[in-house]
Design a protein around this nucleic acid. Structure first.
Lengths: 222, 222
DNA sequence: CATTTCCTTACGGGATTCCGTAAAAGCATA
DNA sequence: TATGCTTTTACGGAATCCCGTAAGGAAATG
């Protein structure tokens, strides 16, 4: 079994359970951080001292409070970690259940398992840890199990997200066009952006922009 | 201390911690349900058998899964419970941190304490339970502590929420007007609704309807 | 009962979205 | 360079939103 594991989870009520699982699995060194920044520091330090972690179990969303942070989400933490310790195994343990985001975690962030917090997540988490230890890939807790080849949501790219983001901040077409020109994002004609929004509306079956943003918010795209 | 407590919480990783707190406080009978419906049944049954619960600790949001449910949120559970056992003490333990919703829990649902899930929530929860037992009122975990007299968000009433809900579902002004007429919600002229939306836009500093809905989503109003 | 005030509804013009068509530009191929 | 294909941009009319003004109606006041 893993020897040294780091848990990144802000809610104390949850980290308690995670640590308990790790103890039951006889992990000898279990560390826990409540902020992403602390997680990165610990990983760097361990690496520097030649006692690197075997596994990272991280949440995705972290509450913001008085403390100023550089890394504010699990994604950011994982991205940073990938830059310093490539071989570290990664399990994400989160409430998120949107295919789009989960797929991106496997494809873009190279995580090894995703466990969704739910009614039986403690067992699911234990299973996932054991499976990752056996070097299995792309482990998904059983309440999710979607098809990785399904292209439905994967097609939405960062360009679309940028549009949705600006829309949700009250920009009108012309302002979006202007902003895109400044950021050298193409295409940036109002007409092209309009067409793209139209595609999104068809895709998400939205009646109008207001509806579209409401849906995008529900999907966690913005 | 309380003798008989019911915990309504779907995430097993969290209920574990809650139950642990209750055990430490020497609560002799601790029951736990993962669905709101089960919670109501248990409370009714206990009442019927003349062994009612002293305290309910409930989450607000419950994941939906294969199982069909009548009550789908903590609010609905509490509302139902208020109808059958008025003297039951109620603590809400949730991640929610929007003043609007929390105030409504105290004012409209008569809860005794609100503890927000966070980095020190286990201690907060323990304190809240003890305070409720001492008959203290309106207990709030320390990371929130807002002013109850602050009228900023309390002014937004169900009429506004109805408008925002329909907007977020893609309705245009005219459709909202028609819908309101059918439901006998007044005022229902397109012009009045328009004016109300305008007020909301000023209030939330929104540039347009799209922006407004994005903000409303962020605030958890819809 | 007349007057005032507030709330609701109606109307209108400009801005923006919505949606289709067409021109212009970029790109590959021969 | 010429040709065809695709992507991007431009344009225009209808629908809807946006925002101010005003008319109509109900409740409050004297």
């Amino acid at each position: 079994m893993f020897k040294k594991v780091l848990v990144a989870e802000d809610l104390d009520s949850i980290s308690l359970a995670v640590i308990q699982v790790l103890e039951e699995l006889n992990v000898s060194t279990i560390h826990h951080v409540k902020y992403c920044d602390d997680g990165l520091i610990k990983i760097k330090k361990a690496l520097h001292e030649n006692e690197p972690y075997d596994l990272l179990i991280s949440d995705l969303s972290f509450k913001s409070d008085h403390r100023k942070t550089t890394l504010s989400s699990g994604e950011e933490l994982i991205e940073a970690v990938n830059g310093v310790q490539n071989n570290l195994k990664k399990i994400v343990f989160s409430i998120e259940d949107k295919n789009f985001r989960i797929k991106s975690l496997f494809n873009d962030f190279g995580i090894n398992a995703y466990v969704s917090k739910g009614r039986n997540s403690i067992t699911e988490l234990r299973n996932a840890i054991e499976a990752v230890y056996r070097n299995e890939e792309r482990i998904l807790s059983s309440d999710l199990s979607f098809n990785f080849n399904d292209k439905t949501l994967i097609e939405i790219e960062s360009y679309d997200i940028s549009i949705l983001k600006l829309l949700s901040r009250g920009y009108i077409l012309e302002s979006i066009s202007k902003e895109f020109k400044e950021l050298s994002i193409t295409p940036n004609g109002t007409s092209s952006i309009e067409k793209r929004i139209n595609k999104l509306k068809i895709y998400f079956k939205a009646n109008n922009n207001v509806h579209l943003i409401a849906i995008a918010k529900d999907f966690g795209l913005v």
